[in-house]
Every structure is written in structure tokens, then in C-alpha cells.
Design a binder for these strands. Structure first.
Lengths: 193, 193
DNA sequence: CGTCTATTTGAATGTACTCAAAAGCGGTGG
DNA sequence: CCACCGCTTTTGAGTACATTCAAATAGACG
């Protein structure tokens, strides 16, 4: 339940003094969740941005035909939320699920606004976070547009070896935008060569 | 060559006083480009973030097999750059091209850093810009993962009617991640019904 | 141990691509 | 003003990539 990790995460981009650290921590809610718990369901208001202190989360969208699309995984030291709905206080389009027993640190929209007012440096912190998220997603789009499923799977393994170990094939398939059956076929072909 | 538009664009998210406006404008470079001019080529250092004052730009990636993937269009009042390379001073992965005669306002990385120091409110402005870009790309990924090409085309027309008028079918196809031939077939099917 | 879910396998199908060729369209120069 | 050029769009046939459905097998967990 230590809060070292989140402070270190913040220190990557901005410097806080003791008082600012204390204020920030006072705004954070600590939450223990078991594997398979849903932190957010479609249609709910997304109140929090979540920092993974320990464990792992997954954000996914479910369409009318019950097809899942994994939007992102978040392992230790990652931030995750349904950003659109968090920012605009709209009903969530995605589910966020614990894929392991996890310890999550939550920052609410209201507290984030307080934080921006009292410690404007956090504008910078979240700017950098958003920049990184944006460029990551942009790269993912390029890959989705130009690569075959097999190539995307290769890239995924190279870029996110931590994810590849932590999550099921079914979930990887839904991140890549293919069926579990086809991912299985891809893996079979790979070993054959 | 007026700078009203960019100031209005900024005023959507933060309030500047006269002095701050003047300082901001002093950092901006004005550029007129003809249709088909490349503002950025793959491999170059991406020095600027571009604001479209008049005209239209397109960012696209070209893979080993010469296949183009359009990353984004930017019409009047939009910001566009190769964000990853702009931020990290890396060689660009994308081309940015004028798809009409355009008037572009450019802000360099160095000047942006100056701006952050002298007018920290801009941290907020670009945070919001990045947030919006991020959530937009995330939505695009969900659509790419769950919808067929025809559905994606429908959404594109609904969401970006301005784009649909300004750009060629070939470019729309490369934004949707399909071949021009297949987009042509989709359009044929649509009218048939 | 039994149950539930994940993964694999294979056949049939559908979606989108490649290649080639024709038709359309816009700009440029004579 | 028209003829020509280059590029975009259309069309169609053949093919490749990826899905669906069903069933068998393997793993995880209480």
C-alpha cells in the first residue's frame, strides 16, 4: 500500500516538494480489487483515472455483436481510464477489468481539477502523459493500417513483452483486432518455420 | 495572413492578456505553401507544429511496399504535426503535404519550450489539445477493430463531412485502411440500395 | 475430480486485396 | 478551345487473408 511508486512515476516529469506530494496523496483513493473485478462498466460515469500500483488492468469495448476490442492493457506503473468519458463526464463506452488481483490508486475528476488549481505543474505532467498516449495510439493506428495480423502480433511481442506474459491469447487477439482462432493459427505457422 | 483565427483557437481553452498574445505571436512563423508542397518528409527532423490558418494538410505514412496510410487530415483551424518526432526530435516517420494552397502558422519546438516557461498556461492548452487528440485516436482504433470497411466509411462521412468534400477518394481509402478499388466498390454498393 | 474457459484444429465462407484494363476528369500547352 | 497527358476512379477476375462455426483438446481453479 506504499505510495512510492506513484510519486516516482510523477517525478519522471515534474518535481514536487514535500507539501505538494502530501497534497497530491491526500486526493488519491486506494483500492484493492480481485482478479475479474470490473472497475468500470459500460454506461457508468467514469469518475476516476487509475494508476496501477500492483497487478494489471485491461480496458475493452464490446460492440452490438458482443465482439470485444481490447483498447489497452495497464500493468504496474501505468495510468488507465476511459479518457473520453472521464474528461467529458459521459457514460463509459468501455469496461475496465482487473486481470490480476490489483492495488489501484484512483484520482477523481474533481480532485484532478483541484490539483490543477493548487499545483499547476500537474498540467505539465498530464500534458506529457497525454502526449505519450497520443503518440502511442497513432503508432498503433499506422500498424493497424499497414501490417498484416501476423506482423502486428510480432510487433506486439517485441514492444510489450510484459503484456505478452501477463495476458491470455484471447485478450491479445482482441487487442490486435483478430479472432482467437486466427491468432492460434498464426502461432502455429510461426513455430513451423 | 491575419492571426485572429489562431488566437480564437487558443481562447477556446485558455485566456491570454494582450502581452501574452503578442509574445505568442512573436514565436509564430507564417508560411504560404502551394498545393502538393511537402511540409515534412520522412527522415527529416520535424521542427514545427503546424496550425492551418487557411487551406488543408494531410499527414501520411509510407511503408516498405509504398503503401500509403493517411494518419490525419487537417483543415482550417486544426493543429497537425508528426507528434512523436516533434516531441522527441527524431527523424519523421510521416510526410505532411498541402492538399490545397495553404497558409500555415508554425511553432517550433524551441519556441514552444520558451512559451511553456514564459506563459505556463500553455501547458494547459496543449494538455487539452493532446487529450482531444488522444481520445480521437482511441475512438478510431475501436472503430478499426470492430467495424467493417463499409461501416468505417459511413462513420467517416458522418463525422468528417468537411474532409469528405475536401479530399480525394484515394486519400479517404488510405485513411480507412483500404484500397481505392475497394472503396469504389463500397460506394457502388451504397448507391445500389 | 468435475466444471468452466481457453486454445487448437479444420472446413466452409466472406471480406478485402492484387492486377490489369478501361473510363473519367482536370490541368496545361499549343 | 481543344488535344493530350497524368492521375483518379471504376470494373472485373482471380486470390489471399481472416472469420465463422463446430468440435476436440488442454488448462485453470474451486
Amino acid at each position: 500500500m506504499s505510495q512510492d511508486l506513484i510519486l516516482k512515476n510523477i517525478a519522471k516529469h515534474i518535481d514536487l516538494d514535500k507539501e505538494e506530494e502530501t497534497f497530491f496523496l491526500s486526493l488519491i483513493k486506494n483500492k484493492e480489487v480481485d482478479k475479474k473485478t470490473l472497475l468500470l462498466k459500460e454506461g457508468q460515469i467514469c469518475k476516476y483515472i487509475n494508476f496501477v500500483n500492483t497487478g494489471a488492468l485491461r480496458a475493452f469495448h464490446v460492440d452490438k455483436t458482443d465482439k470485444e476490442a481490447t483498447i489497452m492493457f495497464a500493468l504496474q506503473d501505468w495510468w488507465i481510464t476511459d479518457m473520453y468519458c472521464f474528461l467529458n463526464a459521459k457514460p463509459a463506452m468501455v469496461y475496465i477489468e482487473a486481470i490480476e488481483d490489483s492495488n489501484i490508486l484512483q484520482l477523481s475528476k474533481e480532485n484532478l481539477e483541484k490539483l490543477y488549481i493548487k499545483v499547476p505543474k500537474f498540467e505539465r505532467f498530464f500534458r506529457i502523459l497525454m502526449q505519450n498516449a497520443y503518440t502511442r495510439e497513432q503508432l498503433r493506428i499506422i500498424e493497424n493500417l499497414t501490417l498484416t495480423a501476423e506482423q502486428r502480433y510480432e510487433h506486439f511481442l517485441l514492444k510489450y513483452p510484459r503484456f505478452a506474459k501477463a495476458v491470455s491469447q484471447k485478450q491479445i487477439a482482441s487487442y490486435l483486432g483478430i479472432t482467437p482462432e486466427f491468432l492460434s493459427a498464426i502461432r502455429k505457422n510461426k513455430t513451423k518455420r
